[in-house]
Amino acid sequence: MSVETTKQVSDEHPMEHLLRMDRIPHIWCSTCGLGTTVRALAEALEQLEIDHDKVAVVSGIGCTGRVAGYLKLDSFHTTHGRAVPFAMGLHIARPDMKVIVFSGDGDLVSIGGNHFIHTARRNIDITVICVNNFIYAMTGGQVAPTTPIRARSKTTPYGNYETPFNIPLLAASSGAVYVARWTALHVRRMAMSFAEAISKRGFSLVEVIAPCSTLYARLNKLGTGLSLMKFYHDNSEIRHGADLNDIAIDYQSKIVVGKFLDVEKPTYLDALNHHNAGIFGDKYKPYGGGNGSD
């Protein structure tokens, strides 16, 4: 009976057309927030009614880095930290496509931190989904630049004492035009934010706070994945437009979520075309992805 039920569920998975079913089962632990987040992205792509042929996903390395391998889109699993510049090159070559970077906190703001801020500064028209589980999970639970003060990890066995990044503040102060944060519990709002971010012209960031029960919760004795979801339920506060200086995440403290920033700015290619048209006049053909001879 239970076997039949499983079959029935998998046969009817509503997002099957967006997933590489030939790669399922995935490698993620049960209660990991990644499945929910991937599902929310699939929802967003459905809501947007865009041509999925024209969507590409780029990931770096880590648990979240594996997302590219499960989405049935043109998908690129690159090197640690370099998903963003790879995506930038892809976007500039194909500005007609939607390029989404889907990676983890360590990948994006530690080893890839420099690329993250500079790509935001240039306002490159890509969407970055940062799944923040407060820890390096793929390697077994080491401290991350997002680990809250006092939280334990395998390399902070007595607790962390380094100040973590406030990722939405980092993105906004670097030049992003759209910044939001949700937890893995906020599935519909997360999907809505993904859709907005993908539609937004410019560098958009959505941070997703996600449970890692195998490492973060276990090392900090916070219970199961379910306990973390309950924690998000009880301690998340939706505050759209919150002052980004007030939304840093402390250990087991309130998590401020919402859409924090949604502004208009010329994208990198807008600025390039506008500037060059001013310099070269009619001799300049606005760059739209072609090779210049059409």
């Binding site: 780029v58 690129f76 690159t78 090197t79 930290g81 370099r82 963003v84 510049p85 790879f86 995506a87 930038m88 090159g89 892809l90 976007h91 500039i92 070559a93 194909r94 496509m97 420099n114 690329h115 500079h118 390039l272 060059n276 310099i279 070269f280 001799k283 300049y284 053909k285 760059y287 072609g290 090779n291 210049g292 001879s293």
Partner: peptide, 27 residues
């Protein structure tokens, strides 16, 4: 600029190499 090419001065060489791979896959 006048022949349809894009030059980007990157933040470092790690990014430069990653970006040319992305652009190559973009055609």
């Amino acid at each position: 600029p006048l022949i349809g090419g894009i030059f980007v001065q990157m933040e470092d060489e790690l990014a430069s190499m990653a970006a040319i791979l992305g652009a190559s896959w973009g055609g």
